[in-house]
């Protein structure tokens, strides 16, 4: 029987945009860890599979006042996820014991309703048959099942790594309800330490502290989706990218206009 309690673990991520340089290492680490296939070259930006997508955002000004920030956007693992209740086949599930929104590719029938529901565009569809160049299957990660064409997929906070960590904890004889610590591939690979991952319910833990910082903001907080991915920046204009477009133009939110 499952013995975990509901209230002790909620995995969350904090991404420091002042450290992110847009190198794409997280994107590639994610794809390698999670066996994300590479569609044929005719797959342009909107047909790809990038569970961790890094988006360039600028302040809308001309040189020399132009400023750019790169924003890595994984699935936000919303507490009030818009994608769960829409799925007709129960292929999207919230794991109450971890807060992770899981996607079951073998159950997904590919209706893409969840993709229409997600305001963060964090869900991807296998438009193509996922194939690997000959031999490349030998570099796949056995902890993550490859998907098939015609199903949706997305970031699951490296669930394969969580399973490994749980196996390790069990092998060490730790109780099953004790929260396990693990690091997703993107957080491990980020060369600049921009990604912090952990249990936000851990008192005195790094996530709880970072989430409380005045630099912290969420993407589209007003929608009420309550994402578990928090962003940090000291720059007021960067903090405003989390608002809807109009708010940003009008300079709502904190800080002076157009910093």
């Amino acid at each position: 029987m499952e013995t975990h309690s509901k209230a002790t673990v909620a995995y969350a991520m904090v991404i420091d945009l002042d450290k992110c340089v847009g190198c794409g290492t997280c994107n590639v680490a994610c794809a390698i860890e999670n066996n994300v296939s590479v569609p044929p070259s005719e797959a342009l930006e909107n047909r790809g599979l990038t569970w961790m997508r890094t988006q360039r955002v600028d302040n809308g000004k001309a040189w020399p006042d132009h400023r750019t920030v790169t924003v890595p956007i994984p699935c936000q693992h919303c507490e009030h996820a818009p994608c769960i209740h829409v799925c007709p086949v129960t292929a999207v599930q919230l794991d109450e014991s971890t807060g992770i929104i899981g996607q079951i590719p073998t159950r997904c029938m590919g209706c893409r309703y969840c993709m229409a529901a997600c305001p963060y565009h964090a869900r991807y569809f296998n438009w193509f048959d996922p194939t690997w160049p000959e031999g490349l299957q030998d570099t796949l990660n056995p902890d993550v099942a490859p998907r098939m064409r015609g199903v949706a997929e997305k970031c699951n906070f490296c669930h394969g790594r969580l399973d490994r960590a749980r196996e390790l904890a069990a092998a060490e004889g730790r109780p099953a309800d004790e929260p396990v610590h693990y690091t997703p591939a993107c957080a491990e690979a980020c060369p600049h330490g921009a990604i912090t991952f952990g249990n936000r319910l851990e008192e005195g833990g790094p996530i709880a502290a970072l989430e409380k910082k005045p630099e912290a903001f969420l993407l589209l907080e007003a929608l009420g989706t309550a994402p578990k991915v928090t962003y940090l920046s000291r720059e007021p204009w960067i903090r405003r990218i989390g608002l809807s477009r109009l708010d940003r133009v009008r300079g709502h939110g904190d800080g002076p206009e157009g910093a």
Partner: peptide, 23 residues
């Protein structure tokens, strides 16, 4: 092959046929 994620699939890295130029 996976670096295609950074070029075609996300446009994060500019390809050598993409001319960056101010608007």
């Amino acid at each position: 092959p996976v670096l295609n994620k950074l070029y075609r699939e996300s446009g994060l890295q500019p390809g050598s046929r993409q001319l960056a130029i101010s608007a």
